[in-house]
């Protein structure tokens, strides 16, 4: 599985719509390996989805995301696990351990009942890693 994580100063980028940098990891047998790093700041939503598709990204782990961009990623066949915050290393470990749905990684104000995008996405992503 190829996972993209939007990062800023070793933390998850707070707003994926405005994220400047994304690190692409290949996760095999629970071991992550950096595949590529790319800048995505100036690109439009369409260009970002196209770029992520070209990089064969299966899943995006990100912080806040607008409904518009979220829909475009889903339409582009990319799974999204939004409303995540914390250090990249912790998040990556949680992705590998399949514990990313833990409450401790949720952004403040984002309970599962409140964040529509996350609820749909977690349902969709169940048992995928």
């Amino acid at each position: 599985m190829i996972v993209g994580i939007a990062t800023a100063q070793n933390r998850i980028s707070p707003v994926f719509d405005c994220a400047g940098h994304i690190t692409i990891y290949r996760i095999e047998n629970g071991i992550p390996q950096i595949k590529q790093e790319c800048d995505i700041q100036t690109a439009s939503y369409i260009a970002k989805v196209t770029a992520l598709n070209k990089l064969c990204v299966d899943k995006i782990i990100c912080g806040a995301i607008s409904r518009e961009f979220h829909s475009m990623l889903i339409a582009g066949g990319i799974e999204v696990t939004p409303w995540i915050s914390g250090n990249v290393e912790d998040i990556l470990r949680a992705v590998c351990d399949n514990t990313i749905a833990d409450k401790r990684f949720l952004m403040p104000g984002c309970s599962r009942n409140r964040c529509r995008c996350r609820r749909q996405s977690l349902k969709h992503n169940k048992n995928t890693i």
Binding site: A8, R11, G63, G109
Partner: peptide
């Protein structure tokens, strides 16, 4: 939409989620 109890003590960018937080 963030309750005060969840906001206090957290990094402001994770609470505020603004377009300018990163840049």
């Amino acid at each position: 939409g963030v309750p005060r109890t969840e906001a206090i003590g957290k990094p402001c960018c994770d609470v505020f989620k603004a377009s300018i937080c990163e840049n």
